[in-house]
Design a protein around this nucleic acid. Structure first.
Lengths: 350, 350
DNA sequence: CTGAAAGCGCTTACAG
DNA sequence: CTGAAAGCGCTTACAG
């Protein structure tokens, strides 16, 4: 029934050891027998028994994780890590070894340094979150040269050699945000699109969210009635934001909804609460604590989660399935865009 | 480092075979040595190697699935099944054997019959979706007597012996529906709560959804302004529903939102479309095809998914983790209440 | 370049 | 009631 190495060996007139050498491509086999064995392997549709393989094998699967580190103020990057470890403990018995290479997301040099360390660690696979575009490309190129498979999470660099991308489609998430505001907003009103401290974040991400948001309204029947007003705030400080918002409200009447294109939505929420403008629909990103606070008290209406935990989880499972199970991964694993409001929040706080 | 059977055997002065007999509780061991071995097992914190166990063992894990069958008109129950099979193929190498016992959800006698068949199959575990309350209790009691672990999905019978419940919290989903309608509805309006053909569905489920919905408004600041109007429709036929809705609209002005407590929301959508009342906020349940159609053309605003696929998936993983991995399952595994609108729909159509 | 043997940690008859 | 041996399917040194 089941084809074993022994069967292949018998058929090829060689020993199991030789078949093993061929399967794992570790040389020391004459070209002739190698070709013969490969032929039989295919002919008989050989599928390795992963359990037996793991049991017999000594060395673990070494996975390097190259993502920004988290700080008390920014817990976002803690989530992918715990997703990765959760996947690990589910795949408990399969000898997986995770090594963290965490970099300062605001220091390019640190990324370059840590990326170098990943390469000298010589992992079996890399999970990386790109923040610096060109530097990540360089790193991925070097991975490719060394034959180390890599997978990108959170933001897609679209490197042709990557195993897979695990993350959200930013444009779609902008469209979802638009529809949420659309439900609450009647015709003849203005909607603010606020980008805060863009340079600190992944730039392209945010641009695509904004694009998606605009795209929605362009195709909407309300496109005549609703005016979209962009507002770009260079700094993350509250006094600065307060001033800018005050000016904007003085200048424009009938602002009925605000879309904040990143996790800094709590700053806008703070302003709306202080100025008793809670009725304005407010939508933003990420389940970080200050946002959750304003979601619970009703100032923020909806949050869209990037599901960083799930990203980490899926990334590790993908590495495992590809390298251990010989399953071909799908090149893009889009995380669903979940809509979080006060009443369903509890189900998303993992 | 790792404690093996051999280590236990050495320490206890017995053979590996005897330790195995103790671990699997299959008798033929004197009380004295059994107790000694058990003591050492605990002392050394023995954890079996599942890979070695599965590799050496011949017999598979037999899982019986007792749920309603699906029909061309009602595909809902196809989803848990494919969730179960997806989990199986992910746990590919672990010899899991799923046997389907599908019953006619409208014939109590059929449930009883199929339940009997499950018991004579003697599975290692049962995954069951309760429709008939008392009959399911009886069945679970018999499982318990036979020492067969069972897990309930979709609706919670709360049997004290159950391994776990995998499903949604209906009351919470009602609250979520309420909040969604709340976003779109201004003060001084009426909201319809429509229950269609309740007896055909799981009754308690639907009552709890309605309870949750009411609960939300009672605690809301708008509780004075918003009037909730219940409408119970005994039959599922469109002419009947049309007549009832027409009457209701004649009787009540300012109906701004409708919550349909089950998957029959497409019937109400049809009516709203025919009578050009698309502006009314409409929220209901389940991603079945007629509902998706009205979600896409904007008549239905939001759908709440019960995530039947995920229910099946998680149920099987739970069985596996408990029986093969010796992990204690959490007694309740609440599925998150996902909010689906047109713009994020594509991410939920598995 | 190739094969025979031992081993991974557990289970399964079988003999006593 | 108990133990010794063989086996699950693969990998790992080692000898040649």
């Amino acid at each position: 029934m089941k084809v074993r190495i022994k069967d292949i060996a018998n058929r090829a007139g060689v020993s199991a050891g030789t078949v093993d050498r061929v399967i794992h491509n570790r040389g020391e086999v004459s070209d002739k027998t190698r070709k013969r064995v490969i032929g039989i392997l295919k002919e008989l549709h050989y599928e390795p028994d992963i359990l037996a393989r793991t049991l017999a094998s000594r060395n673990p699967l070494k996975v390097a994780v190259l993502i920004p580190f988290h700080t008390p103020e920014n817990w976002f990057w803690k989530k992918p890590l715990s997703g990765i470890y959760d996947a690990c403990s589910e795949l408990d018995h399969f000898k997986i070894e995770v090594r963290e290479f965490l970099y300062d997301q605001f220091r390019k040099q640190d990324f370059i340094e840590k990326a170098g360390k990943v390469l000298s660690y010589i992992p079996d696979a890399v999970i990386a979150a790109p923040v610096y575009f060109q530097e990540t490309i360089d790193f991925f190129n070097r991975c490719e040269k060394s034959g180390i498979p890599f997978i990108s999470v959170n933001d897609n660099i679209n490197h042709p050699g990557q195993l897979s991308y695990v993350g959200q489609d930013s444009r779609s998430s902008g469209r979802v945000a638009a529809q949420l505001i659309d439900f609450a907003v009647r015709g003849d009103s203005r909607i603010l699109v606020v980008s805060i401290a863009m340079d600190k974040d992944n730039y392209s991400h945010i641009l695509r969210r904004e694009e998606g948001f605009r795209e929605y309204w362009e195709n909407s029947s309300k496109s005549q009635d609703v005016e979209i007003i962009p507002l770009s705030l260079a700094k993350d400080s509250y006094p600065y934001i307060k001033r800018a918002l005050t000016e904007t409200f003085q200048r424009y009447a009938r602002i009925a909804g605000i879309f904040v294109t990143n996790s800094r939505v709590y700053q806008v929420a703070k302003y709306l609460q202080h100025t008793s403008r809670q009725k304005i629909s407010l939508v933003g990103y990420d389940l970080i604590n200050p946002n959750i606070k304003y979601l619970n008290n009703g100032v923020i209406d909806f949050l869209i989660s990037q599901k960083p935990h799930e990203q980490g989880y899926k990334a590790l499972v993908t590495v495992f399935n590809t390298l251990k199970m010989n399953k071909e991964p799908s090149p893009e694993q889009l995380i669903s865009i979940d809509i979080i409001c006060r009443e369903n929040l509890c189900f998303y706080q993992v």
